[in-house]
Design a binder for these strands. Structure first.
Length: 302
DNA sequence: AACACCGCCTGAGCGC
DNA sequence: TGCGCTCAGGCGGTGT
């Protein structure tokens, strides 16, 4: 269950290998994980699609990667063609970097839906070791809740990200308070809404509320300014720590090189319903909020 | 307009 | 050992 930390950790690990690299080939094994936005509207009806879209070209074949970016759980790859690829990991998505001479494990390959072949460009930032001059980037997603979206411009990206709330990794108290003031839903539901705050999923919502001592059913717009600041501080701290640890929230999370997270994240409440609170030993309660399992301490989160 | 809820999809974990 | 069941949940679409 990748949340912001997994996405950011992944972005940081692939960025040096992607920036400046040329995409020599793109293999689309499952076209239905690719969404092409905005392009159809620009195509005159007379030219409309007896010819299927050239997905490999749209996904970067023949161009190079200029930069990577992220907002919330969405990662972007800016291409020299002007197209921008949005990578969403969904529940089970990952990116994997490998040498091209490394055989693809059959089981692993089963859910590789898009495979990019990359070559070191003249301005490549990647270290001159390990992967040599050619490498392969795979988007793997067994459950297919994630996907790749092709955007045709910076404007399209700005528009897409403008509907998201502020990025949770750097959200300040005042900004969070403002975002929460717009809804009377339970605070837990608001935190999960990417339009309110971008990047928080079920795990970190519960963990942040626990540390801030806020009950998950409190109305979002009823939080005191001070509580919003405390919550924002805990959100930033939890996420920043998890980014460094390699987004170890997922039991079998692997970074882009297949290495497991360095230190298993210890969760104070997530997945611990019915067990004693680590602070006060009260039995942790478990309820459903916004159709998500929610664990909290009745005593620490009044 | 704001919000609730459905359903997509597969692997892990469990009981029998 | 192995089968079948349940659960997990991000997010877009639809209903209230």
């Amino acid at each position: 269950m990748p949340e912001l930390p997994e996405v950011e950790h992944l972005r940081r690990s692939v960025d040096p290998w992607l920036c400046g690299a040329e995409i020599t080939a793109v293999e689309v094994r499952r076209a239905d994980v690719v969404c092409v936005a905005n392009l159809d509207a620009r195509t005159p009806a007379s030219q409309h699609a007896p010819t299927p879209l050239d997905l490999p070209q749209l996904l970067g074949r023949g161009s190079s990667v200029l930069a990577t970016d992220r907002h919330g759980k969405q990662m972007a790859m800016r291409l020299s063609s002007g197209f921008i690829l949005i990578v969403q990991l969904g529940m089970t998505g990952t990116l994997r970097l490998e040498r091209t001479d490394q055989p693809l494990d059959h089981t692993e390959s089963k859910h590789r839906h898009v495979v990019w072949t990359l070559r070191r460009g003249s301005h490549a930032a990647a270290p001159k070791t390990a992967l040599q001059d050619r490498w392969r980037l795979s988007f793997r997603d067994p459950r297919r809740f994630g996907g790749i979206t092709v955007l045709d411009s910076n404007e399209a990206l700005s528009k897409r990200w403008s509907v998201l709330g502020p990025d949770a990794l750097s959200v300040g108290g005042a900004v969070l308070a403002a975002a929460l003031s717009s809804t009377k839903r339970p605070i837990k539901a608001a935190l999960l809404d990417q339009g309110v705050l971008a990047g928080i999923g079920n795990i970190y919502a519960d963990e942040a509320l626990f540390r801030a001592g806020i009950h998950p059913l409190r109305a979002a717009n009823a939080l005191q300014r001070r509580e919003a600041s405390t919550l924002a501080r805990h959100i930033r701290a939890i996420l920043a720590k998890a980014v460094v640890q390699g987004g170890s929230t997922l039991r079998d999370y692997r970074d882009a090189f297949g290495a497991s997270g360095s230190a298993r994240q210890s969760h104070a409440v997530y997945g611990r319903g019915g067990q004693p609170c680590l602070v006060c030993e009260e039995t942790l309660g478990q309820i459903t909020v916004a159709a998500r399992t929610t664990v909290f301490c009745p005593r620490c989160q009044p």
